[in-house]
Nucleic acid binder design. Structure first.
Lengths: 203, 203
DNA sequence: CGACTTGAGTCAACGCTGTTGACACCCTCG
DNA sequence: CGAGGGTGTCAACAGCGTTGACTCAAGTCG
């Protein structure tokens, strides 16, 4: 976003000196309260469903103060929602069994917290900054650690395609709540989809 | 759409007797104008970006008239956006080469119209009815025609997983505009991802 | 042919949203 | 002690989707 040419500062720029540098105790406390309320409400109702006024009320704070502290609802969302889904441990394991372990990871851990985070992020995908964050996360959490460990050609593309497979699975499972996939046993999904993913990891 | 069981009528139902049955010429014309304007603006700006007032202005009509005719912005979106992406011909072809043909289809045809429709639908996925429509489309356009033609076990689940793979590919390619996948050659994507899909069709 | 029903269209308004600017407070530092 | 700036409050803005009351004309029927 071309902010540079502007002379007057927007509230978004005024808001965060360095996120915590020159901050008084009172400010730090209300910031934390707002962040906690936002995390809860975004997870519960999604980006559109959670309003700035609702978050402010939950935190016991004036709505204007939310914007004052975080600049915008979008910025608050980005700071609040944790895009890293703790995938590190799975990625670090042996690549020969990565496919099934990936699917198993998302099926097991994803029944509550991760499911809600995924839905919230997916539903906020009309925001450019959210999409950028997804791309960054793909590059940082998947391509960077995994591509160097693969054999053969097109390693980065193949990892990106693995991410696409995972994104698609979570989409049908968590967002659309597809009845066929929801009714299938986790073991079946792990075996079938895990092997499909594996065919890109070790062709 | 299961409208019948409800007793009280919402404005959405009041609006459309049977979509065109008892309609005067004038009404039919403005309805068409609204639909055309909506189709253009939804595709151009997405669900959130296109406003009812904007659509009304584009159609040269009062904003209230848009709601009067279609019941709600959401209903207008559902009637306007064509979820069937003309996949029929690809599905009907030989299953032995389905994977690569599917990927090729979405890579070729998807540069303009389909790309915009996918983005618009994805960005409206916070609406329950839009998600329901996606599920219905999966069942109708993929599972129903394809599952009976497969061999082996878990045919419906395997088709659903194919849909997940496609959804994930389109997500990274069209919505997130992932730089790695965008830079890859279509031929590479067709070969790699097509075979990954094929591994679910004919294991 | 006139009366009545009913669809088409207009207008102002409601309640909601995210965001802003002016203002007062009070802590901290020089 | 005075100045500066982080902190909080308030009312208001423009935009959103949607509603209800209203007028007008077209179509139906006794």
């Amino acid at each position: 976003m071309p902010y540079g040419w502007r002379v007057t500062k927007t509230s978004a720029e005024r808001a965060e000196p360095t996120a915590d540098s020159r901050l008084r105790p009172a400010g730090r406390a209300t910031r934390a309260a707002i962040e906690a309320a936002a995390k809860a409400l975004f997870a519960e109702r999604g980006f559109e469903g959670a309003s700035v006024r609702g978050i402010a009320a939950e935190a016991g704070v004036d709505p204007a103060l939310v914007i004052r502290h975080f600049g915008s609802k979008e910025a608050l969302f980005l700071r609040t929602i944790d895009t890293s889904l703790g995938i590190g441990a799975v990625i670090d394991g042996p690549v020969e069994t990565l496919g099934r372990r990936l699917v198993a990871y998302f099926l097991e851990g994803g029944n509550t917290a991760m499911r809600r985070r995924f839905v919230a992020i997916a539903q906020a995908s009309h925001l450019q900054q959210v999409r950028d964050e997804m791309v960054r996360h793909t590059a940082e959490a998947y391509i960077a650690p995994l591509a160097p460990r693969l054999d053969g050609e097109d390693r980065e593309v193949r990892v990106a395609l693995v991410v696409a497979q995972i994104a698609g699975l979570l989409n049908l499972l968590f967002l659309q709540e597809d009845p066929v996939l929801s009714a299938a046993s986790p073991a079946t999904l792990v075996a079938l989809y895990g092997d499909a993913i594996q065919s890109l990891v070790t062709p």
